[in-house]
Design a binder for these strands. Structure first.
Length: 728
RNA sequence: GGGCCAUUAGCUCAGCUGGUUAGAGCGCAUGCUUGAUAAGCAUGAGGUCCCUGGUUCGAACCCAGGAUGGCCCA
């Protein structure tokens, strides 16, 4: 099978972005109409079609002229010669001589389809064909068509069953097929061809024309298109394409539109060319019959090669005699002869990466298919597609359960990082500078599915969030200092505020796990930040009073510490995938006796003890009610914290829930006194607050405002504190 | 030129199937605290939700067109 030669996918792709404007000879050439006819009338010199090209070296491969079906074409008489070209382009194409031309007849492209013109210097006809890519912006509306030297031309050649001529060898020199130009380097032949055309009177005009031409992105030399024989995977045989699309539907996608994208790539992908002309790579274990020239790909030969390659490496293909790979009595399926040469093409590296799942998965305890494949968005067309096609061809299933696409990392202004512009940041340098966990947290803080920005300011911002989290962890750890395994209180025995906090922790862990499960790392990040911040402002603040002012072994205090231990461990578990080093460091700081059986945070499980969802939701609702009350108290303009006493008049429903908290309600509001009364005139779930100055004076030990001096020895302490101090 | 995607406070982002004054964290300002202290708490100022039309009682969200940026193609 012939195809449009792709020297290298990357080269071609880059070439489009790397087209240098180059001065090139642009020529208008006339091809005489040889068969069929337009109105010849008195045209002594015959009728020609005027074509236009910037690459005269492709003229030896010309086999057709493409017209646009619906475009108007005119027959112009000039100096006794008939010229056919698009009427819309005649003024620009004929230039100053347009005024002298006489329009003899007009028709549309479709009426000229099937006529033949005569090649300007070779002894053959050039078919007049139709193509929809013919534009009426430049040229003559009659497009020189060389199927061996261009993708569009190739397609047209296939459609019209035209010969695909490639009279250029791999080194860019003309072959014998190019007639008089055989042996010449194509770019040097350009000038000669133009000269010859001029001499033979077939050149209408030549001039310098500035246009863009593809160049190699690496060596910057101009590249050319040559149609050569290649190996393909036939996408439409055995319903391969259709089955691949079906398999793609069974896969999950992050983001979800990835499914559309991947299916689109499968739908539109041309026959998959898997051969390359390189000497470094995995050889295609095919044979070429020296008798008939047929390429032969045989399963037995391929298996012999696979065995040999496994032992010696693929390089032996080049040094082994061909007989090494021939099964006994092997004959050419085409001509029956027995003499072969080895194929010289190698397998495209894209094909090799597309089969890595066979090499890596399904062995050594690693399952096939994989849980997910993660790559940048360019890989919908690349690896996501190639892996899927090879897997479907062999196993009729996708090699992954989910496709996750990530965006690109740009600099702080959203521009691509560039080493030469000094905007590039090396990952290693960033890690040394800011620390691995800050980088991890940054990765979670951005929406990785989209393009993201990275730079000192962005990292600085996230490192402040990191410090916050670290401080919460330190707070929890430091308050477990005097806490032993024997002091741990079971959840059932904890005080109401503490069991409530445990519920909030459970909900948090469950949420974060759900985010991770959905690969929504950013969602997990948001939840973590929100959690650590509200835990700190609501719960930790409330715990300071019991933790600091109660006696070491006081039941209230031990309950709080038990909840803190629980919260800390669950928090570290939840945070470990993102803040791995910090979580493990903190985990190791927990006294071994308290840590339980899990020596490492990575041994701990996300699974929570049986969660009663209904009870949990009730707890969460009450937590929110507490938050609301607390913010009303804390936001009170004149009196705050322990200076205040609060009188809460609550409706029956809320009253019942708050009453259950006992003195924990006062703690949660961080005030010295809290009075709760039920009010029939208030809606069941509502409350009104009355915040006034607390009675008494500030106790020097617990800071609460109380009546001091009940213990004569400690006149500046409240009764509770005096009792604690006495017991020391 | 085509397909897909993105665009919400200074920054990083939430806003489910359209429904009261668009939210969070960080930053910023102000106050409190000084027993998490190179910490903690509170309050506040910041938004024509890219633009223009349309549908609707009602649009950040739906539709059409456009702008800017990205990816893949032609």
């Amino acid at each position: 099978m012939l195809r449009q030669a792709q020297h290298d996918t990357d080269v071609l792709r880059q070439a489009q972005h790397d087209t240098d404007d180059a001065d090139a000879a642009s020529t208008r050439v006339t091809l005489s109409l040889s068969k069929g006819s337009l109105s010849k009338g008195s045209l002594s010199k015959g009728v020609s079609v005027l074509i236009w090209t910037t690459t005269p070296w492709t003229l030896p491969a010309n086999v057709a002229i493409a017209l646009r079906a619906d475009a108007a074409y005119g027959l112009y008489e000039l100096d006794g010669e008939g010229l056919v070209l698009a009427t819309a382009l005649a003024p620009s194409a004929l230039g100053e001589r347009f005024a002298e031309a006489t329009l003899l007849a007009t028709t549309t492209g479709e009426h000229l389809d099937g006529l033949f013109a005569r090649h300007p210097f070779l002894d053959r006809d050039s078919a007049i064909v139709l193509a929809d890519y013919v534009d009426l912006e430049t040229g003559t509306g009659a497009v020189h068509t060389a199927p061996g030297h261009g993708a569009d031309d190739f397609e047209t050649g296939i459609k019209y069953d035209l010969p695909i001529l490639n009279p250029v060898n791999a080194s860019g020199h003309f072959t014998d097929e190019a007639g008089p130009y055989a042996g010449q380097f194509i770019f040097k032949a350009n000038k000669q061809i133009v000269e010859d055309l001029r001499a033979s009177g077939r050149l209408w005009r030549a001039h310098e024309y500035e246009h863009s031409y593809p160049h190699c992105w690496r060596c910057h030399n101009p590249v050319i298109f040559r149609a050569t024989a290649q190996w393909f995977i036939a996408m439409d045989q055995n319903r391969l394409r259709a089955r691949a699309i079906e398999s793609a539907e069974a896969v999950a996608y992050t983001p979800e539109w990835g499914e559309t994208r991947l299916k689109q790539m499968l739908e539109n992908h041309p026959e998959w060319c898997i051969s390359r002309q390189r000497t470094w790579g995995t050889p295609i274990p095919a044979l070429v019959c020296t008798g008939c020239g047929e390429s032969v790909l045989d399963a037995h030969v391929a298996r012999n090669a696979a065995k040999r390659f496994a032992q010696e490496g693929a390089g032996v293909w080049w040094s082994d005699p061909v007989e090494t790979y021939l099964p006994d009595g092997f004959a050419c399926p085409n001509c029956g002869k027995h003499a072969f040469e080895k194929e010289k093409n190698i397998v495209d590296i894209w094909f090799e990466s597309g089969v890595t799942h066979f090499a890596v998965l399904g062995k050594d305890g690693i399952p096939w298919p994989s849980d997910l494949v993660l790559e940048g968005g360019d890989q919908y067309r690349g690896w996501f597609r190639s892996s899927l096609v090879t897997a479907v061809a062999v196993k009729n299933a996708a090699p992954y359960k989910r496709v996750v696409k990530n965006g690109w990392v740009n600099d702080e202004h959203g521009r691509p990082m560039s080493k030469s512009k000094g905007t590039g940041i090396d990952a290693k340098d960033a890690m040394d500078k800011w620390g691995a966990d800050v980088l991890r947290l940054w990765a979670a803080s951005v929406e990785f599915v989209d393009d993201v920005r990275f730079g000192p300011n962005v990292v600085e911002q996230v490192s402040r969030v990191y410090r916050n989290i670290r401080n919460r962890i330190r707070f929890m750890l430091s308050n477990l200092d005097d806490f032993g395994a024997a002091d741990v209180v079971s959840r059932a025995e904890m005080q109401p505020l503490d069991t409530l906090a445990c519920s909030v922790v459970d909900a948090f862990v469950a949420d974060v796990k759900a985010f991770y499960d959905a690969y929504d790392i950013h969602g997990a990040y948001l939840r973590i930040v929100e959690f650590e911040s509200t835990m700190s402002s609501l719960y930790f603040d409330a715990l300071k009073d019991p933790l600091y002012s109660r006696a070491e072994n006081d039941a209230r205090r031990r309950s709080a510490q038990s909840a803190l231990l629980y919260a800390l461990q669950r928090f570290l578990t939840a945070v470990a995938p993102v803040l791995s080093f910090t979580a493990e460091e903190a985990w190791q700081e927990i006294p071994a006796a308290l840590r339980g059986e899990e020596a490492s945070v990575f041994d701990s499980s996300f699974a929570a003890a049986d969660i009663d969802r209904k009870a949990l939701d009730a707890d969460l609702a009450l937590w929110e009610e507490l938050r609301s009350l607390r913010s009303q108290v804390a936001g009170s303009p004149n009196v705050r914290d322990f200076e205040a006493k609060v009188r809460i008049a609550a409706g029956s429903g809320l009253h019942k829930r708050l009453a259950h908290l006992g003195d924990n309600l006062r703690e949660a509001l961080v005030v010295s006194e809290c009075e709760l009364v039920e009010s029939a005139s208030i809606e069941s779930d509502a409350a009104t607050l009355e915040i006034t100055n607390a009675d008494g004076e500030k106790c020097r030990r617990c800071w609460k405002f109380r009546h001091l001096g009940s213990d004569a020895e400690h006149p500046s302490l409240c009764g509770d504190c005096a009792a604690v101090v006495r017991a020391l």
